[in-house]
């Protein structure tokens, strides 16, 4: 059986941002080339069609057989899509691969499936995400997995893996799920975090975990902390081994020695009940 693949190649970079939440694997199922070309996208107040921006091709790709998570066709977008917003927004299943960079809100409200971004991602990546997996091979903007302004809960499930750097407020108000950043991140990761796990392999900006209520922020590099985080102990949490295995399963490999490293544990934010935890790697060699 050959896996169906739908490829959308960008004709040219638009001069204005385009909102393209219609592009996800579920929306292209059982659709022909013409149907896909007529899917709506928005440019400002103007409704336009996918065909205005993309060449559409449908192939049964034997090499990619089984690469999708289910029977949905794999959706591949080619080109610099950094002016396209809301790609993969709300997707619930299937695989969507973007061979380039994407704009704001990619994978926001995502419920399942896999979104692979082979370039960089804009702000609000995976905001309010509920499930599934987002992999970014480049960097991500601000507010990854965070809550939109006025909302009390950000990401409530799923996994976001960023190999490069991330912007400010990674996991702001996140309620559940996992965010891993391979590089550095800007200020306030885990801001007002309610639960879940954030791993930052590089350097983090200031005010890590500020106002966090619960959850875990793991830092592999030393970091000055807010005075509202209190030192508990130095130890090896056993769940770290599980987390390493889970990350490896999704292709996010940590140094081999990292599975056995110990952490300095801090409880905080004391202003919010001191139920969250910061784990800072104690082995400087890693």
């Amino acid at each position: 059986m050959m896996k169906k693949q739908v490829t959308l190649a960008l004709k040219q970079i638009p001069s204005l941002p385009v909102e393209a939440e219609s592009l996800n694997p579920e929306n292209i199922t059982n659709k022909g080339i013409e149907d896909i070309k007529h899917l709506p996208v928005w440019c400002g107040r103007q409704q336009e069609e996918v065909g205005a921006y993309f060449d559409v091709e449908i192939t049964a790709d034997a090499e990619n057989n089984g690469s999708g998570k289910d029977d949905l066709p794999e959706l591949v977008l080619k080109g610099d899509l950094s002016r396209f917003k809301r790609l993969g927004q709300g997707m619930g299943a299937g695989t969507m691969v973007i061979q380039g960079s994407v704009g704001f809100h990619a994978g926001a409200l995502m419920r399942g499936g896999t979104l692979v971004i082979q370039g960089n991602a804009g702000d609000w990546l995976g905001a309010h995400m509920e499930g599934g997996l987002i992999q970014v091979e480049g960097a991500a903007g601000h507010f990854t997995g965070a809550a939109y302004q006025g909302s009390s809960k950000g990401m409530t499930g799923g996994t976001i893996l960023i190999r490069g750097n991330a912007g400010q407020t990674v996991g702001g108000r996140m309620r559940r799920g996992l965010i891993a950043v391979g590089g550095d991140c800007d200020d306030m990761p885990g801001y007002n975090m309610l639960a879940g796990t954030i791993l930052i392999c590089g350097k983090a900006g200031i005010r890590v975990g500020v106002r966090m209520e619960r959850g875990t922020v793991i830092l592999l590099q030393s970091q000055a902390l807010l005075p509202t985080f209190y030192y508990d102990c130095t130890y090896q949490p056993y769940f770290w081994g599980l987390l390493c295995a889970r990350l490896a399963q999704d292709g996010f490999l940590l140094p081999a020695a990292s599975q056995k490293m110990s952490f300095r544990r801090y409880s905080g934010d004391a202003n919010e009940g001191c139920r969250g935890e910061l784990l800072i790697c104690n082995d400087q060699a890693v």
Binding site: R176, F239, L242
Partner: peptide, 13 residues
């Protein structure tokens, strides 16, 4: 006690 969800599975610490 605290829980940690990894993948689809919940663990208790």
């Amino acid at each position: 006690q605290a829980s940690k969800v990894i993948g689809d599975e919940r663990f208790w610490r």
